[in-house]
Design a protein around this nucleic acid. Structure first.
Length: 1049
RNA sequence: GGGCGAUUAGCUCAGGUGGUUAGAGCGCAUCCCUGAUAAGGAUGAGGUCCCAGGUUCGAGUCCUGGAUCGCCCA
């Protein structure tokens, strides 16, 4: 009883995938695949949480399928791979979305609206696209447990983050400092360096050269003005000092009435070549001089100081110092005991300290301030300046560098340790370790973890109203223990609720929570422990859950999640949080442009899935190129991938099932000869199969799905275009039952093993094939390929056979080229093909000559191994073997080889003798390996050659051969008629033919053969059809008219 | 301004440790096959391997410099 399920055409691919998906749902296959490995060694995967308040795009498909393939692979190899989904819930993107919905903007708007209600809406907004995310996740076959996903806003999660922050605080790794930070005045918050990195834009800012006249009555500098250059004129009112570079010579340049001071080296750049330098002053003589500030509004020392950070690369070599608005400026101010006055409020507007522009946003104040300076004759020159300036990555507001208190984690303390740990991480590509990520770590600065925002993990720090002492609270229990009010059992640990809970300070005073929330990157970096509510629940260690064996995200996460994970892993556990990292590239459109909604070039994942299916989408992403390069992505490239690989595979599978399902077909378990007794073609296929298993396993174990996938592509191509092509007849000829059984068993095993190898890549088609190739026939087999074990490579490699087959393929290609040259179609049988090649090749090919003969449609294959006669030989030195031996004498050797008598040399080598040549007075013995031969047909043969092989065909078509060719043509015509009549491949027919004398002669000569080929039980010839024809057609065969009638037998 | 990566056929991409005539797919042209058929195959045209130096008997491959593009940092 055959149990094969009928198979549909490849064009119904997406319907097939939907059916498989349904089977997974019904059988709960994902859960089962994990559960059945319980007790095995864990393989730890961390899901980097996406934010679900936007639609998932094609780039999310990229990361999600890479997150899928390795867990699937390791599951099949016996590891337990828990896959907990996660969602990043907090942060500015969410707040911005809610602000947009509410039509409010900025912090005052939010506070007027009410933090409680605002945060409630943020919580809702987070889940808005959750359903679409889950639907896409399922449809692309990303197996991850979304039912128990961690969410960074969950109470348990927040408590774990509190634990982390409080632990760092207790270790003395957290501090608060007034520091200049990149600050977004619209969002009202400082940005972390990795956020700043997201928002550089090329802009044109005003840049001005301003004069700072030195005050009269000082030792040096009477009548001189310092020249400073700035691209942020709005910082000039806050000027406190002018910094110069120690050890640099400063020039006094005459400019009209004025005498300007600037670094001597920069005079030509600033003043032009003709500038007159009056004299030169060493930096030391300028230090300490006082000058007239650009605006006499804010008190200060207005003094010249020396600082190492000043360069003479650009500007004037004198730097305007506004301590509140620059990191270097602040350091200079600290070093020299200067104040850091700040005339700009939190919204980025000038305060009453600068009446001229009070209430004006700083960037808008530039022109007014410059106009005022100009009017006072203090501007030397002003030119627009194009540079890259950081903007808020969410709202595009230009960032201000701005002094304000912030909370920091002292990551610089563990910088070297992070570098150590990073050295042991398996990065893919490897250059990220020392390159992009390593360089980033080397330049590490303390991590600013506080944000003055609303929707985030509140910092668990309480500051005493009386003694200012800060208490860090590591758990809700600890909070309850020292709270001065009742803490509800269902505490929402978000603002504003936690802000209403004062606690008792050690000094007896009352402490209130500091207003800031945590950087969302701290949330995601905490996921290794927070997703398990560590250390509050379950085991108090993370054994089997930390570190991860594998994480995977886009390359831009080097500064984001990859960093926050490593920083927290190092600080809290002194261990790298991941062993292997796979980086992914960007998804660009087909023209290499970044996809963006405004350009309208976004390829939606659903478009790809609906048209080409998830397997094709996945296969493209895995195999198109190295995953960390940018993808030039379009529907077309996925479609091409699908046709090239998936359809080829599917056609091969359909071929097997079609013939196996016939009544006289075959089922798994039917007896078949053992592999070693099967024909060469089968042994070759199994050898290739074993080689591929080995390769795919090794490449996947090394996180290289691209090479693994390409090995599979080659195998499928070999099977389809060589094995099936040459073995086709064995699948339906009844005269060799052992050969038929061997063919079925071989192809079945290949496809079954391929379904296993393919399972992590294309889980749908792999399972579909497994179901029909294995599961339906064997009730004890795993019902899904994803519950099966990864195959072990067999021991049937036969490299000699593989090599011989390559030669056979080459001979076939050449034979076909020869036919084309001679204009002899393949259907016309010929007497013989002559293969000219070295004896070793001939020995190798001998066992395969039947295959070559059949492919070339010739009766005989004859080998010619002697040079001369059929072919001429030319000799070339083998540089690969001779080069290292000869060194600089190599050109002389090449000349010596060219001088050899080719025919005699080849004869000697073929006889096993060596050949000696004299090169630069030394005798060199040449072996067979050292000489490469090229054969070329001699005159008179229509042949084709390639390297050491040449194939010639006897072109004489005898009458007998002609009749045989005609018979073949008739078979083809009848087969076409069968197709036109819509018959099944196994239907028996009766045929009646009518045609010319030549046609009749061909039929008479080959009647039995023709009937056999077309499954005819009766074949008649002549006028008048002796049965009621199901189908009839008139046509031509080899220019002869032929009428074909046929009917079912 | 600095770091990292890329640049190979019209397009998309392969090309361990340097070694014969640099490959594949798509597209194009010309054919073939027809018991996988809304498939399949063959042949052909198409290359200054970004440029310039260098190392070497020999460089797409290694070194130096430059150009262009991308990402990251300042």
């Amino acid at each position: 009883m055959r149990r094969w399920r009928p198979v549909g055409p490849a064009s119904e691919w997406t319907a097939m995938e939907e059916r498989v998906l349904e089977r997974w749902r019904e059988g709960d296959v994902f859960r089962e695949s994990v559960a059945m490995r319980r007790g095995g060694e864990p393989y730890v995967f961390y899901e980097g949480p996406p934010t679900a308040n936007g639609r998932p795009g094609s780039h999310h498909v990229l990361s999600r399928v890479f997150k899928d393939i390795f867990p699937r692979f390791h599951t099949m190899r016996g590891r337990v791979v828990e896959r907990k989904a996660g969602w990043d819930c907090h942060g500015l993107p969410v707040e911005l979305e809610v602000e947009r919905q509410l039509g409010i903007s900025g912090k005052p708007g939010i506070e007027a609206y009410g933090i409680a209600e605002f945060n409630r809406r943020c919580r809702e907004s987070v889940g808005e696209y959750l359903e679409e995310w889950e639907r896409l996740t399922e449809r692309i076959g990303f197996w991850v447990d979304t039912s128990e996903a961690y969410r960074t806003m969950d109470t348990d999660y927040v408590e774990s983050v509190w634990w982390g922050l409080a632990t760092l605080f207790e270790k003395g790794r957290v501090y608060e400092s007034d520091k200049v930070v990149p600050y977004c005045p619209r969002c009202g918050t400082a940005l972390s360096s990795h956020e700043v990195a997201l928002g550089y834009q090329d802009v044109v800012d005003p840049s001005i050269y301003v004069t700072l006249p030195l005050l009269p009555g000082q030792s040096t500098g009477e009548g001189l003005s310092l020249l400073v250059w700035t691209t942020t004129p709005w910082t000039l009112p806050a000027n406190q000092a002018a910094a110069i570079s120690p050890g640099t010579e400063y020039a006094v340049v005459v400019h009209g009435e004025e005498r300007l001071v600037m670094a001597e080296a920069l005079v030509p750049a600033v003043m032009g070549e003709g500038a007159v330098v009056e004299r030169v002053i060493p930096a030391a003589d300028l230090a300490g001089l006082e000058y007239e500030p650009p605006f006499d509004l804010i008190p200060g020392r207005h003094v010249v100081v020396m600082s190492g950070f000043v360069t003479t690369d650009d500007g004037t070599g004198i730097v305007h110092i506004a301590p509140a608005f620059g990191e270097d400026d602040m350091r200079v101010a600290r070093d020299h005991g200067l104040d850091a006055p700040n005339p700009v409020d939190r919204e980025g507007r000038f305060t009453a300290a600068v009446p001229l522009v009070e209430g004006v946003f700083v960037k808008d104040a530039d022109s007014v301030l410059m106009g005022d300076l100009e009017a006072r004759g203090r501007v030397f020159r002003s030119v627009p300046y194009a540079h890259s300036y950081p903007h808020c990555w969410r709202c595009s507001t230009p960032l201000l560098y701005y002094a304000k208190p912030s909370w920091y984690v002292r990551t610089t303390d563990v910088r070297d340790r992070m570098l150590d740990l990073n050295a042991g991480v398996g990065w893919h590509p490897g250059h990220v370790r020392e390159g992009r990520f390593g360089k980033w770590l080397e330049g590490n600065v303390d991590w600013a973890i506080s944000r003055e925002r609303y929707w985030g993990t509140p910092l668990p720090f309480w500051r005493c109203d009386d003694c200012s002492e800060v208490t860090a609270i590591a758990s809700f229990a600890a909070l309850r223990a020292c709270a001065l009010v009742d803490v509800p059992a269902d505490l929402d640990p978000h603002r504003p609720w936690v802000d209403t809970i004062p606690v008792r300070c050690g000094c007896g005073g009352t402490a209130h929570r500091v207003p800031e929330v945590a950087d969302v990157w701290f949330d995601s970096g905490a996921m290794p422990f927070a997703q398990h509510h560590y250390p509050f629940e379950g085991s108090d260690d993370l054994a089997g859950r930390f570190p991860a064996d594998f994480v995977c995200e886009a390359l831009d996460q080097t500064r984001g999640w990859f960093y926050s994970l490593l920083a927290e892993g190092t600080l809290l556990f002194d261990e790298a949080p991941y062993r292997n990292v796979v980086c992914l590239g960007l998804i660009l459109d087909g023209e290499g442009q970044k996809m963006s909604k405004s350009k309208g070039n976004v390829v939606e994942p659903w478009t790809v899935i609906d048209h080409a299916g998830a397997d094709a989408f996945r296969w493209y992403l895995f195999t198109a190129q190295s995953p960390w390069e940018s993808f030039r992505f379009s529907l077309d490239v996925v479609d091409e991938t699908r046709r090239r690989f998936l359809f080829t595979l599917w056609n091969t599978y359909v071929f097997l099932v079609t013939y196996a399902a016939l009544p006289d077909g075959w089922s798994p378990g039917d007896p078949a000869p053992p592999p070693e007794e099967r024909p060469a073609m089968d042994r070759w296929a199994l050898s290739r199969l074993d080689a591929t298993v080995e390769q795919v396993t090794a490449r996947l174990a090394d996180y290289d799905p691209t090479a693994a996938g390409r090995a599979l592509e080659e195998l499928v191509d070999d099977l389809s275009n060589w094995y099936v092509r040459t073995s086709r007849r064995r699948f339906w000829r009844g005269d060799d039952p052992a050969g038929t059984a061997a063919a079925f068993a071989t192809l079945h095993e290949c496809l079954t093993t391929i379904s296993l190898l393919l399972a992590p890549f294309c889980p749908f088609v792999a399972d579909e094939m497994w179901g029909n190739l294995v599961a339906v026939h064997d009730d004890t087999a795993p019902p899904s390929v994803h519950l099966a074990d990864w195959p072990d490579p067999g021991s049937r490699r036969d490299q000699d056979l593989e090599q011989a087959m390559v030669a056979a393929m080459e001979a076939t290609t050449l034979g076909r080229a020869a036919r084309k040259n001679a204009k002899l179609k393949v259907r016309q049988p010929l007497l013989e093909a002559v293969i000219a090649c070295p004896p070793a090749t001939a020995r190798m090919l001998h066992g395969l000559s039947g295959i070559v003969a059949e492919e070339l449609n010739v009766r005989e294959i004859r080998f010619v191994t002697d040079a001369g006669g059929l072919v001429e030989v030319t000799l070339k030195p083998n540089y690969r073997t001779l080069g290292p031996r000869m060194g600089t004498a190599m050109p002389a050797m090449a000349a010596a080889v060219a001088d050899l008598d080719a025919t005699a040399t080849v004869r000697a080598l073929d006889a096993g003798e060596s050949v000696t040549v004299t090169v630069q007075g030394r005798d060199e013995v040449l072996r067979d390996d050292d000489i490469l031969r090229e054969v070329r047909p001699s005159e008179g043969y229509a042949v084709a050659e390639g390297g050491p092989l040449a194939v010639g065909l006897s072109t004489h078509v005898t009458h007998e051969l002609e009749m045989e060719g005609l018979a073949r043509d008739l078979v083809r015509a009848i087969q076409n008629a069968r197709r036109a009549a819509d018959l099944n491949v196994a239907d028996r027919i009766v045929v009646h033919l009518d045609g010319s004398g030549r046609v009749r002669e061909a039929i008479d000569a080959h009647r039995q053969w023709i009937a056999g080929e077309v499954l005819a039980t009766d074949l008649t010839v002549g006028h008048g059809v002796p049965f009621a024809a199901l189908h009839r057609e008139d046509g031509e065969v080899d220019a002869e008219p032929v009428a074909i009638s046929l009917s079912r037998a």
